[in-house]
Design a protein around this nucleic acid. Structure first.
Length: 460
DNA sequence: CTCCTCACG
DNA sequence: ACGTACGTGAGGAGA
């Protein structure tokens, strides 16, 4: 039986895509209508309609069990926060109100609404910030006696998991299919990335242990498995290709760990002598380069001074002079044309590149850099998606085709998740990886890592 | 509705 | 002199 949204909406989306594409309204552009690849033509919107139609199977019992466990923890944390605050300032607060927390932490003890009198660390538009960075600093600061910052950090983490995921996802399960059929939007992100909504399946937790557990609720039906494949260092490989920087290209060709290789280069030491800390610093630099690095931003993340961060950046730019030239070219292109372009000619207007306000112009310059790299990565995985979708359609009912019975379920920017018959999963995985790695012919190898598992947790 | 916060790549 | 690493979506408070 057809799903409410997948049937009629698919045709409507295609029509909207066509009309918008003809007017070339950013962020939707010509390449979104037809992704041209070798002899193949396919509107990406058909692939997305397929993803939305397929959906991913979710175990509501698993969500419930995890929710109940965390709700117990949450109640205990709330009670401890209440106790601590009542003892220290004689009042309690709404645990979900940043404004009230700000008062409780930063107001003077003798104020009408008394607070702990802690010295604020950073401001928001409307007051003092209580975000995770601030609370972590307060929790680590020996001169702050109160356990409240640490408790709120823990409370916020669990409340986020219950509120946004464990409590809400169950309501998104379609009763007819037992699956969540999220939307994958083609016309939202300015860089050309997809986005996901209702619910967003591109931000399911993975970075913390307790959060990652949630992925155990995303499962394959009996006799089937989830196959996940993700590009290794996609944006940095594209940076190497686009910039033609010899050192970065050579590091990728040699199959080196790229963060360690960059650490060795900036410090002029052998790869074997790179420490964990040096690698992690280089990783921050690599991220920073793709985002449009600033000394301030790097300093904040590395916990070093502005001038030390500046020296690191200078060293990087000297060792990787091809990258430096490329970054300058991105900015120059934006100045000359008012927009930048990805590998597949997707344009993003950069109007603020001419701004007289230094901070706006600086943001425009970082945007120019990031849009080329992030947008080209989006181009690349879209090509892989169209290619794979065609193969899946051809193979659909062919039991002898490795992709027979395989469904594409999710795209998470550099990762694709499929559902496949358990029996042929390894062969299906091999074809998927092979096609993803062949999406574009770059000056560096394109590598996709993969996993096969009963649920989305078991993977990476 | 805006703001803040926080989940992901 | 100025505020800062890019791109998203969602939930709760507060207005």
């Amino acid at each position: 039986m057809p799903l409410d949204k997948a049937g009629p909406y698919a045709a409507e989306d295609a029509d909207v895509t066509l009309r918008l594409a003809q007017r070339l309204v950013p962020p939707l552009q010509e390449m979104d209508l037809l992704v041209l690849y070798r002899d193949l033509e396919m509107p990406l919107v058909e692939v997305l309609a397929e993803l939305e139609y397929n959906g991913i199977l979710v175990d509501p019992g698993e969500l419930d069990r995890q929710r109940e466990r965390l709700e117990g923890e949450i109640e205990r944390l709330k009670a401890r926060i209440d106790d601590e605050l009542y003892g220290a300032i004689g009042r309690t607060i709404d645990h979900d109100s940043p404004k009230q927390l700000s008062g409780a932490l930063f107001a003077k003890p003798d104020a009408a609404e008394p607070g702990l009198g802690i010295t604020p660390i950073k401001r928001t538009k409307t007051g003092y910030s209580t975000d995770a960075e601030v609370l972590t600093k307060l929790a680590d600061d020996a001169s702050v006696e109160s356990p409240v910052p640490a408790l709120v950090l823990e409370y916020r983490q669990l409340a986020k998991l219950v509120g946004t995921y464990l409590g809400s996802l169950k309501d998104e399960i379609n009763p007819a299919t037992g699956r969540i059929h999220a939307s994958f939007n083609q016309t939202v992100a300015a860089t050309g990335r997809l986005s996901s909504s209702d619910p967003n399946l591109q931000n399911i937790p993975i970075r913390t242990e307790v959060g990652r557990e949630i992925r155990k609720a995303f499962i394959a039906p009996p006799g089937r498995v989830l196959v996940s494949a993700d590009y290794s260092q996609l944006e940095l490989r594209l940076l190497a290709h686009l910039s033609r920087d010899p050192a970065l290209i050579e590091a990728f060709r040699a199959g080196e760990d790229i963060h360690s290789a960059v650490a060795a280069q900036i410090r002029g030491i052998p790869l074997s002598e790179v420490t964990k800390e040096q690698r992690s610093g280089a990783k921050m630099v690599n991220f920073g380069i793709v985002y449009g690095i600033t000394a301030f931003g790097l300093a904040r993340r590395l916990g070093v001074s502005n001038s030390e961060a500046d020296e690191i950046i200078t060293g990087y730019k000297k060792r990787f002079s091809g990258i430096t030239t490329f970054l300058e070219e991105c900015v120059a292109h934006a100045r000359e044309h008012g927009y930048v372009e990805t590998m597949c000619k997707r344009r993003r207007p950069i109007p603020d590149i001419e701004s007289n306000q230094p901070n706006r112009r600086a943001l425009a310059e970082r945007t120019a850099i990031n849009s080329v790299v992030q947008g080209s990565a989006a181009d690349l995985i879209k090509i892989a998606m169209v290619d794979l979708h065609r193969r899946l359609a051809t193979a659909r009912d062919d039991a002898y085709d490795p992709l027979g019975g395989v469904l594409m379920l999710l795209q998470i920017h550099d990762e694709l998740v499929f559902e496949a018959p358990q029996a042929g999963a390894e062969k299906a995985r091999d074809v998927i990886v092979e096609r993803m790695e062949a999406a574009m012919d770059l000056d560096v190898p394109l590598v996709a890592d993969s996993s096969i598992s009963q649920d989305w947790f078991g993977g990476k």
